[in-house]
């Protein structure tokens, strides 16, 4: 029997989920108001996964993210000011405005980048895990990726190599049932992506991705295993994205039903967890409300910081194409 998470852990899990939700809701609004340029892929609905996994990681551990990457960085400790500034393309952003939403990253937090290439993350996480083993650091690397990404060759090559070299690598599939507008049943014949673990001789675990405790515990087991040197795990979290593939309302394509959306919204990972927290006497409604108002202050401050920040100077265009000695 795994021991019950402490009150502190439960509160932290809640805080992380709320941080992601509030960050994303505002980011989505700002994109649709055309204040944030380009396209955002929002993480709303899937917060339990990043929160539950990251609760088991330190800043030293690495992750690779996806095009839907804000939630991962928030859960890894991302600073709202630097994140919004990046989304706004300002020089104070995490990537100095060069990357934007799809490439937001920060090495100090072990965040090896959101990624505009579907399936881009797993090979990089495998490589980071290789370094961890090679350098005997005891760090682990986690690759987040979608159900759609599990059809890229890169995923398969990365899992096979991580298994072969017994690397401290965890592959976390965020199965939200769709790759863009294509339902899972139209892009693969299996129901559980975790089944693919068998082909590479590693454990495959399916967990309810709307249940933050379930994710937290399953991730802990996989991460402990990896840290002990027992090799990778494929952890599949069943989830749903509440907003469209891009933005909140997106392009208005009809590819899923309102009933389906409503059904999943009833399982909102934050609302159900809050009910649980109140029931367990871990938090009161008043305390929960306070979390939101604190986080919303951070959101407001972050947006303000971004809007007050300068754009990059033209001279920065050609900086950081290469690492220059002495610069």
């Amino acid at each position: 029997m795994p021991k019950q998470p402490t009150k502190k852990v439960l509160q932290e899990l809640h805080l992380t989920m709320v941080r992601i939700r509030c960050f994303e809701d505002t980011a989505g609004r700002l994109m649709e108001e055309a204040k944030i340029p380009g396209a955002l892929h929002l993480y709303v609905g899937e917060e339990a996964i990043a929160s539950g996994v990251m609760q088991n990681l330190s800043n030293e551990d690495q992750i690779t993210s996806t095009h839907r990457g804000h939630g991962h960085l928030v859960a890894k400790g991302g600073d709202f000011s630097k994140m919004y500034a990046e989304l706004y393309g300002r020089s104070t952003g995490y990537c100095r405005g060069k990357g934007g939403s799809m490439h937001v990253s920060n090495m100090e937090l072990g965040m090896l980048g959101a990624n505009g290439i579907v399936g881009g993350g797993p090979p990089i996480a495998m490589g980071a895990a290789f370094a961890n083993k090679f350098l005997k650091t005891k760090k682990v690397a986690v690759a987040f990726f979608g159900d759609g990404a599990s059809n890229e060759g890169s995923f398969h090559e990365a899992v096979n190599m991580a298994a072969l070299y017994k690397l401290p690598c965890i592959f976390v599939c965020e199965n939200n049932g769709y790759g863009e507008y294509t339902p899972q049943a139209k892009h693969q014949t299996i129901v559980d992506v975790a089944d693919r673990a068998g082909g590479y001789g590693i454990p495959g675990v399916v967990v309810d991705g709307m249940d933050v405790i379930a994710v937290y515990e399953a991730a802990r087991e996989a991460i402990d295993r990896a840290r002990k040197g027992a090799g990778p795990t494929l952890l599949e979290c069943k989830t749903y994205r509440f907003y469209d593939h891009v933005g909140v309302r997106g392009m208005g394509m009809t590819y899923r039903t309102d009933e389906e959306l409503e059904k999943w919204k009833k399982r909102d990972p934050i609302q159900s967890f809050e009910a649980e927290l109140i029931k367990l006497g871990v938090m009161t409604q008043k305390q929960i409300d306070k979390v939101y108002s604190k986080v919303n202050d951070l959101v407001e401050g972050g947006v303000q910081f971004a809007e007050d920040s300068p754009f990059p100077e033209p001279s920065e265009l050609l900086e950081d194409v290469y690492c220059v000695k002495g610069a």
């Binding site: 340029p37 990537c95 405005g97 934007g100 194409v321």
Partner: peptide
Amino acid sequence: SPVPFSPVL
């Protein structure tokens, strides 16, 4: 250089 994100760049 790669294509920069920031609209000004």
